[in-house]
Design a protein around this nucleic acid. Structure first.
Lengths: 122, 122
DNA sequence: CGGTATCCTAATTGATACTG
DNA sequence: CAGTATCAATTAGGATACCG
């Protein structure tokens, strides 16, 4: 760990990270590809139940342009397109894993530590 | 490490994480408080050079409500308000550190690896 | 099946002015 | 100094229809 900490106090690294995978769907797409490997367009669409075709296409294109995923097109009928993490995309494994782990820890915090903080009336 | 991985394949953890610190400024605010400790309102405002008063107040309030930071008000003239990470907020150290590290790695990738990676024939 | 194009709404963001 | 309130601008996100 700590392979590269040239400016630990600078927000530059965090800013770059947010620009690359900061959207609403990108972390989820990357997380699925990381855990389940290569996926077809339709498979991703089914798993991200609330996403629309247009949004999924858009997010996948941006991830591809950032070099995080690879798009493989099979020239056949019916069409078949597969997506998978690139070599560089796989370096996200640690970050995404930590994000997931902390998310669960935060859920515990919200459920356990806040017993005296009344229901969320909205 | 890997203290809690109850559903590694589920996106639940990532979703929770995004809801808690998913904004544009929150990771930066938390990162600064993590690395530099307690900060006054004006200090944060100076470091986040592009943020407006309203935005900073809004983000700090949400972070406070999520139990990630602590707001300490000094009843004096002129007013003085300090912010610092809560106990729970400090558990973000690993995640934020990984985010920063990966961001720098991504910068290297964008600047260096792309000279020979021309197979993106679209 | 896997897109693309268009339009639309809602959430973020930012500038400005005012207050205790 | 540290807010609060308001409004305008931008952007992200989403529904629908059509195409190769």
């Amino acid at each position: 760990m700590q392979a590269d900490m040239r400016e630990p106090d600078s927000t530059q690294g965090v800013i770059t990270m947010l620009q690359a995978i900061g959207g609403k769907w990108k972390p989820l797409i990357l997380f699925i590809l990381l855990n389940e490997g290569t996926k077809r367009f339709g498979q991703l669409r089914r798993q991200l139940t609330n996403i629309t075709q247009g949004m999924l296409t858009n997010q996948l294109r941006e991830l591809e342009q950032d070099g995080l995923i690879v798009r493989r097109v099979y020239q056949e009928i019916p069409p078949k397109v597969e997506y998978e993490l690139s070599e560089h995309g796989r370096t996200l494994k640690t970050v995404l894993g930590e994000m997931c782990t902390w998310g669960y820890r935060h859920l515990d915090f919200l459920n356990g530590e806040k017993v005296s903080a009344g229901p969320s009336e909205r």
